[in-house]
Design a protein around this nucleic acid. Structure first.
Lengths: 246, 246
DNA sequence: CGTGAGTTTGAGTGCGCTCAAGCTTAGTGG
DNA sequence: CCACTAAGCTTGAGCGCACTCAAACTCACG
């Protein structure tokens, strides 16, 4: 597993202080001395798009943070039906301290770079580092909120609303990264394939594709390419998503 | 809100040491001195079936643990569509430390007794009590796992599988409470109404009712009353739920 | 220019929804 | 003690949305 020659090319990670996700990841509330320990423990590793990072049921050797790219959590039934149950972006944490295995596959949706820690070492550190534990609790609560919003989508929204909801999430995320509010005439990359999108939304590929076409024909979105979405009116999209006019 | 005369009838809670959920709740890893503090802070309060414990969006004054009964978390859309996003049993925790409001209603499904703490006091204690924080993290991770399993159900399972899955969960829970494995000829109370069940599963009341009838006609379950389920063969039910034959 | 993965479009079907009526059960007052 | 009521649950008929199966299109890559 941990063959040095294989890891070395990836292990050239910068100092934690220079890390682009320093202020959002699990380590964001660490003091300098705690960060120094993490700096020693960490290993970078890159996975290609489509590669499985962790297999459901397998023992989990390493925990870590997404530094670059997009990873998905996937539950699969015996007959092949699949449901995405998590969508991870840079600064999101992979792995559940205290658990030997995960009940879902973790799959790289794009090329993914992880900042990894050996599980046992990280858990030992966690037990003695309140700042880490506090941040992890907050991040887990955030994920739980997102999962519950997602449950509303899966259980009660129409195919059209599901697509619009997903695009709304991406648009908001993109706006935050650009440090602006979601406004008129923004555009963003929808990152994942139609297949991954269908798995996210609990739909088939065909329905997914049809609804995107319908939103395009209705002028809610424009397609610069199959993956790049242009948004003339964010509020219009949000309304299509069936959101509370909060 | 906190009118003494109203609370007094409920506030007669026993010592934490005698608490029936002492070993499973958020306080389960507390030492005697920590428990003594919680003992001072806690207030018992009972809600009637159907009563809303916390309204979505309202400021949350108190956090707490379900001691008795069953509470639900409900997201509602403007047009009235509803999706249950959490189902809480004794020992489960209500409230998200660090958040002023919740994005869903918390509603008593049956009569519910809570062991409550004033939010600010609890959060202050949490910040200085690693045993509390560690346990809360573990419980939140458990909830996240449950939410993800639920997402598979909502996104990919048929109505019949959804019903069977829910009954499987209840049967397992009931077996654990009786400290036995789910076996043949067990029976249990399904606790919640058809309406709540439909909200849980992302179905209508009618479809829910039809599928229960179908499972009965096929001999998978028997109905002692409309709420009491008899289970001739647990494995048969689990197979109907579309579970991995792990 | 050929190949194949990813995506779109088409035709037809069926599962779960809607609307509507009837049934069961527990609680209430004559 | 029994009608009366209302809430909860069941059953029926018909419809529409999303699924299935199938074919065509797009586009990056060799």
């Amino acid at each position: 597993m941990s063959i040095p020659s294989l890891l070395s090319q990836d292990a050239r990670a910068g100092r934690c202080g220079d890390c682009p996700i320093r202020h959002r990841a699990v380590c964001s509330q660490c003091e300098a001395d705690e960060l120094a320990i993490l700096d020693q423990m960490k290993t970078y590793r890159t996975f290609t798009a489509g590669e499985t990072i962790i297999w459901a049921g397998d023992p989990v050797a390493r925990l870590g943070t997404v530094v670059k790219g997009c990873a998905t959590l996937l539950r699969t039934m015996e007959d092949g039906r699949r449901q995405m149950v998590g969508l991870l972006f840079p600064s999101d944490f992979i792995g559940r301290p205290g658990r030997e295995t995960t009940p879902y596959d973790v799959v790289a949706a794009t090329e993914v770079t992880l900042c990894q820690f050996e599980r046992q070492s990280f858990e030992d550190l966690l037990a003695n580092t309140p700042s880490l534990e506090r941040r992890l609790l907050q991040m887990t609560l955030d994920e739980l909120d997102a999962a519950r919003e997602w449950m509303l989508l899966l259980g009660r929204k129409s195919a059209r609303e599901k697509i619009a909801s997903f695009l709304t999430i991406l648009a908001r995320r993109d706006a935050v990264l650009r440090k602006s509010a979601p406004g008129p005439d923004m555009s963003f990359d929808m990152i994942i394939s139609r297949e991954a999108l269908a798995d996210y939304l609990g739909l088939t590929i065909e329905t997914t594709s049809r609804q995107i076409t319908a939103l395009k024909n209705d002028g809610v979105i424009r397609l610069a390419t199959k993956r790049i979405i242009e948004l003339p009116d964010f509020e219009r999209l949000a309304a299509e998503a069936g959101e509370d006019a909060a």
